[in-house]
Write a protein that binds this DNA or RNA. Structure first.
Lengths: 341, 341
DNA sequence: GTGAAAGCGCTAACAT
DNA sequence: ATGTTAGCGCTTTCAC
């Protein structure tokens, strides 16, 4: 049988559609008597509002999109774990998309705008697009970008201070007495802005210490995954002058590098110290555990959602702001070794 | 300025709304001349169809929901990585929800049905609900359940043969000469059906070998995560008669167990061999790497999507079928040791 | 091949 | 407090 509509309920309850709508949405003052009548009818007919119709009437979908390059990257998975409940609390469902870093896909998403899709706003972690590309996004699309801003923009950025965090990570290695520190993950091209910030921090730490950077130790990787980390480490260890430490631009890179180093029979951290970035759970269970830069993921998730909903709710265009979440360095076995005692 | 509607386009092009709709959707035969006229108008007005209106008119949202207990569980993340593109190819967007295993939340999802939400069907990995609870789902909701079926039902199941896979995993350990094999992950209560299948396979392998199971080696864990695996292993190692191997009900459990064992200074696999379940990428980079049962995740993802869309497209109710994807045992360092040579 | 118009089921402005 | 009704913007039946 056909699903019951609001009209059916109104008819059975002997009231108007308006009243039923009021009851369903908890609006206005409705007499106790009427309310009960209506509620009885709703139960009787097993009425459930049609979300699609409601969306059209409201002009909004109650959905936000979260777009990440790869869902199976633990960092994103952990971030989503924070984003979804936050959005739900605020009455929004989360639509997820992954782009595989495809610039065409990413561009289409930000250009088509909210109207072309069933979502009211978007949180995007861009990979295939440089920041410059982002600026020609559809102006009607409320947009929050994950990651630090490197240039002015008309949307929000939420991230941590990558330069500073990278500087601290590198200094940590320097403080341990390491002097040949590799940087694994540089991406010296327009879409690699996030990576470049980390490289900058790496360089600054060396400057701070009055040390020169051995440019041959700055290793590029196309992605920030385990395979790239393992590959880079293998190359480094094949050299005559291998490093005694590595600052890896993600924990996955560090875990891949760790794997490669151990396969070679090296001791970590004695022969080579490793520090990662992101503080994914995996790094707390690896052997040895991975030192890392730990961004406040909960804050990032919450802020991204809140800013987005603010934009969605606002009629006039909000200026693009940049929010910096805090981070801290977590020293684990891969740099300071097993706890003695 | 207000977004252009189909009417605006029709007016500018000097045709009716019907014709514009035809052009936009590639329907029917439209004269080349008209088509060009309309397309020009579309570009001129920067017209984009309103998805919300289209949804209402069509009575469908073009979205499917995928509901998992935890997004940051690598197995689910990897599965989603397969589900999303598959759904997209077929013209569907994916809405994601996580339940944290909350039975109330899960029940609400399957009871409210598609009408109450903006999706046309659902792929669910139940955690808080026993299979019996699933049967009172809203009949109008096309539903595919991830995981093996343990009782008859009106929806589809997609999974692997858990009993057989577990039997193989256990036999692998027996074949290596291990005789005190722990099983980590049992859940002897109604919502733990998936776990119980694995325990059954574990027992069968012992029967096959004519060996008795030491019941004290069957360890329950509330979840299948790293912390539970580590906790269980710690308890086992504290005993006077520790095991010489463990069949872990997920790779995360195995990784947690591995961590605990190594922290104790044990050698894996020499002192204790470990095998997991799921074949997540992490297990290919751990040290040692983790032997595991590898389900064909690509097939599971594809089948789940295809079956769901079939259900969505069908007018009459389809009988619930059970699809078994293949699996294979992957022996890695945690059971067979480092490759010699 | 194209036009006119009736929904899809809800919300909310306007009226009482 | 409740009723009436005009949209929301698209799809699609029915004519021509």
């Amino acid at each position: 049988m056909r699903d019951a509509t609001l009209r059916d309920v109104a008819q059975l309850a002997g009231v108007s559609a308006r009243t039923v709508s009021n009851v369903v949405n908890g609006y206005a003052r409705v007499t106790e008597r009427t309310r009960v009548k209506v509620e009885r009818a709703i139960v009787e007919l097993d009425y459930r509002p049609n979300v699609l119709a409601r969306n059209l009437a409201n002009g909004r979908s109650g959905q936000i999109a979260v777009v990440v390059p790869y869902l199976d990257t633990p960092y994103f998975a952990e971030l989503l774990q924070g984003i979804i409940p936050r959005a739900r609390e605020r009455g929004y469902n989360v639509l997820i998309d992954q782009t595989d870093g495809d610039p065409v896909h990413e561009r289409e998403l930000i250009r088509r705008g909210a109207r072309g899709f069933a979502f009211d706003g978007m949180i995007l972690s861009p990979l295939g697009l440089a920041q410059a590309d982002l600026s020609d996004h559809d102006a009607s699309l409320p947009l929050v970008i994950l990651g630090e801003r490197t240039s002015a923009s008309t949307f929000d950025h939420v991230g941590i201070d990558d330069v500073q965090a990278s500087r601290e990570a590198t200094r940590h290695l320097l403080d341990l007495g390491r002097r040949r520190i590799a940087a694994i993950g540089d991406q010296p091209y327009p879409t690699g802005e996030a990576a470049q910030l980390r490289t900058r921090g790496y360089r600054l730490a060396h400057e701070d210490a009055g040390l020169a950077v051995d440019e041959s130790l700055v290793i590029g990787t196309p992605r920030f995954n385990r395979a790239d980390g393992a590959g880079a480490m293998t190359l480094l260890l094949d050299r005559d002058d291998p490093p005694d430490a590595a600052f890896c631009y993600s924990d996955l890179v560090a875990l891949g590098a760790l794997h490669a180093a151990l396969e070679r029979g090296l001791r970590v951290p004695e022969d080579i110290a490793l520090i990662g970035y992101d503080d994914i759970e995996e790094g707390r269970y690896s052997n040895p555990t991975i030192s890392t830069i730990s961004p406040d993921k909960t804050a990032i998730a919450a802020t991204a959602v809140d800013r987005l909903l603010q934009r969605i709710g606002s009629t006039e265009p909000l200026p693009g702001i940049e929010v910096r979440a805090t981070h801290r360095l977590v020293a684990r076995q891969s740099t300071v070794g097993r706890l003695r005692g």
